[in-house]
Structures are given as C-alpha cells and as structure tokens.
C-alpha cells in the first residue's frame, strides 16, 4: 500500500455568478488595491488516502470529487495528487 496526499479545489463554474467573490472584489477596491478584474471564491479540500497504486488513489478521489465534494451542476473541481511516504499523524 502507498500513501497519497490530495488537494481538491472546488469553484463555482465561470457561468455562475459568485456574489461572495464580487463582494470581496468590491472590498479590495475599498482597501485601495487597484486593478483586480476578477475574484472568485472556492473551497480547498486536503485529504490523505491509502491505496495500492497512484492510479487507484486518483480514481477514488476523482469519484469523491464528482459525487460528494462538488455539485457538477454549478461547480468545477481540479485535483492535485502526490505521493506521501508516510501517513501524517492526525
């Protein structure tokens, strides 16, 4: 068995209005930070997984991302998976 660390980014699809992102962009202007033309807020999920192969770990995390971590009707996700030598202590 090998251990892997996965990082999943979930964001609203570009066609879906992100009012929280718009509010933060407006606050950035109030702070005096100029030039921000786009600001979108998403979620970041970190997990550790034990699996026989990297391909199997990827398959499981992709299934999880599709079925639980995101709602494909309004959200997209991306995944970064890397080998981890030992499971981290909880």
């Amino acid at each position: 068995m090998s251990f892997f660390q996965a990082s999943i980014e979930v964001s609203l699809r570009s066609s879906v209005l992100d009012p929280a992102g718009e509010a933060a962009r407006s606050a950035a202007q109030s702070l005096g930070v100029e030039g921000i033309t786009k600001l979108r807020i998403g979620k970041s999920i970190q997990l550790e997984i034990e699996a026989p192969t990297e391909a199997e770990a990827r398959r499981r995390v992709e299934f999880l991302s599709d079925r639980l971590l995101s709602n494909p009707v309004i959200e997209d996700w991306s995944l970064e998976l890397k080998n981890s030598s030992l499971p981290k202590a909880p």
């Binding site: 009012p19 929280a20 009707v73």
Partner: peptide, 17 residues
Amino acid sequence: LTELGLLPGALTRNKDL
C-alpha cells in the same frame, strides 16, 4: 431534492448574499 437528483438544477448563494 436537487442534490439527490430527484429534481434538476441547484440552489446557491442569494445574489446579494
């Protein structure tokens, strides 16, 4: 019901938050 797929679409943050 939308998360379950018994109805289509999704419900998300109100436009004005």
